[in-house]
Nucleic acid binder design. Structure first.
Lengths: 220, 220
DNA sequence: AGTAAATCGTGAATGAAATCCCGGTTGCTT
DNA sequence: AAGCAACCGGGATTTCATTCACGATTTACT
């Protein structure tokens, strides 16, 4: 019997949803030991359509069982596999401000195969402190830490002005990806992957819809 | 001369980009007093295509000038207008943990017409403290604060278990929108707008691409 | 056993977004 | 004054995403 062949490249929208599935199914499985979950069940909880869920499952090569649903462990395994949760990435956080500390203590990362090795801060007096189980190190150890721990990803939570120079240093030290929480864009060589997390894009959407609702009410 | 008629509804993707434009143009205008900006200039910085930028401008009713570009102040005004930055929204933050405090002191919000009126926390002993210019209040004042300040939006930065009960209380008190940073989904009546900010979807994308790059290198 | 109900799988249709293409306008240069 | 180059505008095309519709499969029930 020929196995279904998952497509080579996952689409952006699918990727975004996979993490939601992973989270939700993981939670459910912990609570009630539920071995199976239906597409419509997932869909209702994530406020989407059941067809979408089935298509996503197909995309990561998971098959469902009619009248039963999908086996939770199969789904989780497939997501772990396709997202590479098992080849643990080493990461560091730059900037031990409130956001950096909050991220350092976020328990989700370790579940997703991301290991935070250090939290760097420009204020040397903070070195040695522990934030969320991670040691704070002075910023001038940046290069040596990247090389010593074979760090692939840096999480940037510094003020906007500091971001670009730091990015340059890290790229030089051999870093391959940057998760940028600083409110500014970064210029990097083409081999390096940057994901820019801009908190206020969410705000834009909220503001727009809140506003539209108001004017609609007013004109009706 | 007939003005161009912007479409009634802005598309999701456009909304996401508008905030980037706003940010970028605002910054540039402050630094070098630059009265005009071309679509390709914006596109390069935000790593997208110039056609996209022009289409977005058309969508919010801004016209450009051939050989010159777009007038920065016109663009900013149009974005402020369409996103309603000028009818200031009152908001509260629930959960004065690290993330809640970080958001309270984020200077961006006030620029975008969002005013944080209070920071509520379940630990009453924290009441009275000031975080990022916002006063911490005990959680049992939730309803009275919402009503007294006519709060339309709540920013939820609490542990997953606490989120749903709080959402229920807030909806009862007349809240109209929730910006949910808790790692769980919320069920609310249909009149209420929820935006779920899930930090790890960004991680999913990074993990996937990092992984794909590795295997690609290995097989070539 | 046989029928009914739930659930998956997928192809077709619709809708959204990105990209391509090219004509039109304006400022700059000479 | 004329030509050029930079930029916009908007139609056409293509890719991506969602929704719809329906047949196929399996379990539960009578």
């Amino acid at each position: 019997m020929p196995e279904s062949k998952p497509p080579r490249t996952l689409k952006h929208a699918t990727l975004e949803r996979l993490m939601h599935y992973y989270h939700y199914i993981g939670e459910q499985i912990a609570q009630q030991s539920m071995g199976t979950v239906s597409s419509s069940e997932i869909a209702k909880l994530l406020d989407t359509d059941d067809t979408v869920v089935r298509k996503d499952m197909a995309a990561i090569g998971v098959r469902g069982y009619p009248r039963v649903g999908f086996k939770a462990d199969e789904v989780l395994a497939a997501i772990r596999d396709v997202l590479g949760f098992d080849n643990a990435y080493r990461a560091i956080i730059i900037g031990a401000g409130r956001l950096g500390s909050a991220l350092a203590s976020y328990p989700g990362f370790s579940r997703y195969g991301l290991r935070i090795d250090a939290l760097l801060d420009s204020d040397p007096s903070r070195a040695g402190a522990i934030e969320g189980g991670v040691e704070v190190r002075p910023l001038d150890e940046l290069e040596s830490i990247i090389e010593a721990h074979n760090v692939g990803l840096a999480i940037l939570t510094v003020p906007a002005e500091a971001a670009q120079p730091l990015a340059d240093r890290m790229v030089n030290a051999g870093l391959r990806a940057i998760w940028n929480f600083a409110p500014t864009s970064l210029v990097v060589p083409s081999g390096v992957l940057v994901r820019h997390e801009h908190i206020s894009v969410g705000l834009a959407e909220l503001a727009y819809h809140l506003n539209r609702r108001d004017t609609k009410e007013a004109s009706e």
